[in-house]
Design a protein around this nucleic acid. Sequence first.
DNA 1: TCCAAATGTTACAATAGTGTTACAATTTCA
DNA 2: TGAAATTGTAACACTATTGTAACATTTGGA
Lengths: 223, 223
Amino acid sequence: MKETILIADDEVNMRILIHDFLISNNYEVFTASNGREAIDVLDQNPQVSLVILDVMMPVMNGWKACEIIKEKSDVPIIMLTAKSDEKDELFSFKRGADEYIKKPFSLVILLARIQSILKRSINRKRDYKRGCLVVEHEKHKVFVEGKEIILSKFEFEILYLLMASEGRIVSREKIIESVFGFDYEGTARAVDTQITRLRKKIGVAKKYIKTVRGYGYKFEVNE
Amino acid sequence: MKETILIADDEVNMRILIHDFLISNNYEVFTASNGREAIDVLDQNPQVSLVILDVMMPVMNGWKACEIIKEKSDVPIIMLTAKSDEKDELFSFKRGADEYIKKPFSLVILLARIQSILKRSINRKRDYKRGCLVVEHEKHKVFVEGKEIILSKFEFEILYLLMASEGRIVSREKIIESVFGFDYEGTARAVDTQITRLRKKIGVAKKYIKTVRGYGYKFEVNE
DNA sequence: TCCAAATGTTACAATAGTGTTACAATTTCA
DNA sequence: TGAAATTGTAACACTATTGTAACATTTGGA
């Protein structure tokens, strides 16, 4: 059974970006363009298991929506904000938000937070074990044949993204969008370099990371 | 581009009701009065992006039709039933239905489910199973008699295009436009070469790719 | 501040994919 | 039947894609 996530953001591109990313990671997704709408969708769909609220929205902002939602249910809430003001963060937590993510953020980080929260609320799996490769997201650790491997931030996130998309092709554009951030300006070849470094570091586990010529990369275990 | 929906229900009033409602909501609609007809319509119109099946129909009921349709492709299916029996619901899901709506239902609910499903499956390509040939779009894999075949990008895309156009002739121009891109500058003979290579790689499944002299190529399974 | 790690770009090598050509095979139709 | 049109296919040269090392910059800590 798929988990259902509700996204509320007034920027349509942001909604689509997150929506598509979550769909491709096997979630059911609803969207809303302001706080009022989010509350309506939530009333109609009690199966929603997590809410993502942008702080800045017309009609009803994220803070207010968060407060109202938390009065009625204890569905977990992630707040998104462009402000880096510490006061805002405190403000969100006081109103019951479970997580607080500053824009811009990478989708992989968002996914990790979502999985972390869902695990907390329904005992969901978030570490990956495939063949001789183990990735523990919370501890940010990677093991190959039981031996710990130190990866850089991007190497880790690319590996995590590929494993979360096991069996499916992940294009360079997708990797850039999800890992480097949607405002990344560089060339797609940077992905190749990261993949090369990742493969070198994980040694024998490199066999799981396959190149799909013309499309991108794919994580796959043949056994 | 309008989405196309196929409705199969033996009650003519119900067909007309749903048909008119969907037309007025800007969908393209086909209708069928039993499961057998639904499958025929689907075979003739691979662009159908969602199927609504009534469970109780003469000739071939909704369960059976659902099963047969899902064997060939993964087009989303909504089952309609008058029974409120829990077992039926389980039965439908087991046979691959994506949604299950109990009669009587409001058209607004139906529309909401349709939109939700189409949103989910937009940009998601179907998998095809024909004879000894299986093509999984998302995983980008091709199997002949269960054995995986590695195809290049163009070979894969031509095969996919032909299968999506099963039974109909696809001209070289169409293939060029769809696969090579509208700005392709080369000769149409490049298609012939790709077809040759494709046939060679898929071995026994080559019998499905037929040359239609003077027109192009056609994917067809005779059994 | 300084150092080490991380990162993106560039350049070049290796590989896989592709289009064209030429000729063979087949089909069409008068 | 025989010539013309169409298609099949092998061989070749050319392109595109990817792997990777090396380098220059940037970043983040001591």
